[in-house]
Design a protein around this nucleic acid. Sequence first.
RNA 1: CCGCCUCGUGAACA
Length: 390
Amino acid sequence: LECYTVAIGVLITESQMRRAKILVSEMEADGLVPDCVCYNTLINGWCEMGHMKEAVFLFEEMKMKNRQPTTAVYNTLIKGYGIIGRPDEGTRVLEHMTMMGGNNNTAKPNTRTFNMLINSWCKSKSIDQARRMLGLMWSAGVKPDVVTYNTLATAYADLGRFEDIENLIVEMKNSYLKPNRRTYGILIRCYCQEGMPEEGVELLENLKFEGLSPDLVALNTLMKAYTQPFDPVQVEKVFELMRKYGVKPDVATYSTIMNSWSSVGNVEEARMAFRKMEEEKVKADVMAYGILVKGYVRSGRLKEAECVLEEMRDNGVRANVVVYTNVIAGWCSQGDMKEAIRMFKTMVASGVQPTSYTYHKLIWGFSEARQPHIAQDILDAMNKQGITPD
RNA sequence: CCGCCUCGUGAACA
C-alpha cells in the first residue's frame, strides 16, 4: 500500500496547467478570444515546466486562430528550449524569426530574443556559441544591453574566469554600456569562488566611483565566502560593512550563516542565528526553515526536525520538496521506514510533488532495511509515471 | 497607457 501512495505524485503541477486550460475555455464561452499575451502566458507556463510539446501545441493553436505570434511569444519558446537544454532548437526559432522578415513583421528579434538564446547556450556550457550569438546580434542590428553582458559574465563566473569578466566589463564600457550592481555582483561571486573574497571587498568599496552603492546581494555573497568554513572575524566584518553601507541583513544573510552551522551538524548555533533573525524582525522563509530542518536531521534529531515543520505551518510557510525530502532521508538513514513513509504521505497529502531524488532516498532506505521488494515496487511505480530512475 | 518573455546572493553532500 505504500506503493500506491508513492504513485500519487506527478500530476500536481500539471493539474494547475489543466486548470488554466479550463479557465481559457470558460473565457471562450464568454465570447472572449485569447490574444497573444494570453497565449504567451500559457505557453510560458509549459515552457517553465520544460514541457515543450504542450507549448508548441498551444503555439500552433494560436496561429490557427489567426493570432500573429509576437516577438514575446517566440522569445518564450526560445527560453523553453533553453530550459530543456536545446539551445540549438532555440537558434532554429531565431532563424525562423529572421526568415519571415518583411513588412507585417510582428516577430522581429529583439534584444531579449538574443539574450535568451545567449543564456541558453551558456547554460549548456557553450560560451563560444554564446559569444557567437553576440556577434550575430551586432550584425543583425540588435544592440546588446547590460543583461546580455551579465548573462555572459555569469557563464564565466561559473567557470571561475574572473579575468574574462573583467574584460567583459571593459568591453561594455567601450560600447557605452554601464555595468550595474548585478554585473559587479557576478564578478564578486567569481572572486569568492576563486578564493579571493578580499578582491570582492575592495570592489565593493570602489563601487561608489561608478555611481553605484553596495547592495545586499553582493554582501551576502561575501558572507557566504566567509562562512565556509565559518570565520567569525570575517563574518563580523561583513556585518560591519552592512552597517557602514546602510543595508540590513535579510533572510538570505541569516540563512547563509545558519547553513554553515547546519552543514556541520551544529544545530544549536544554527538555531541561535535563527533566533537572532527573529529578533531582528526578519521573517523566515522556506529556505531558512529548510536549513534548520537540515541541521536537526544531520544531528539525528528527527523529532525536532518535525517540530520545525509544525513551526512552519503555524507561521504560514509551506514546506516544499527539499524540506520534506530532507526529513524523509533522515528517517531512511535511521532505518525507520515506517516513519519515512509516513512523512512521504504527509508530503503528498499537502500537494507537494516528489522528485526523483526523493524516490532514490526511499529506495535506498528500503534496500538498506532489507526490504528490497518494496524498493523494487517503488522503482516500478516510478517507471509507470515516466520518471527516469538513474 | 496597461497585461506576457531575459541577468547576480541563502536549503537535498545531485
